[in-house]
């Protein structure tokens, strides 16, 4: 799980062009949206694409994203449970 968490932090920085942010800055439990990393609606859509592209998970209801993307930890848990790649 730790490896996946680390991998996710790297991916998020790359995929969402968070060039000013370092790996150490992202805490496992920090909210990704709203206050924490301040991601927005386009970032959420991009994360949905990432789930499909890198882990083979297709979200049928995009609203599920709100729960899954709460933090790095919730993302990792969801991916670990549902990944096809």
């Amino acid at each position: 799980m730790q490896a996946l968490i680390q991998e996710l932090k790297e991916k998020i920085i790359a995929v969402l062009s968070l060039e000013d942010i370092n790996l150490e800055d992202i805490n496992d439990n920090d909210p990704l949206f709203g206050d924490g990393l301040g991601l927005d609606s386009i970032d959420a859509l991009e994360l949905i694409v990432m789930l499909d592209k890198d882990y083979g998970i297709k979200l049928t209801d995009p609203k599920e994203g709100k729960v899954i993307f709460q933090s790095i930890e919730t993302m990792a848990a969801y991916i670990a449970a549902n990944r096809l790649k």
Binding site: L16, S17, I42, D43, L45, E46, V49, D52, K53
Partner: peptide, 9 residues
């Protein structure tokens, strides 16, 4: 095939 919303915008 992975259309990117962040690029599309």
């Amino acid at each position: 095939y992975f259309p990117s919303p962040a690029v599309f915008v």
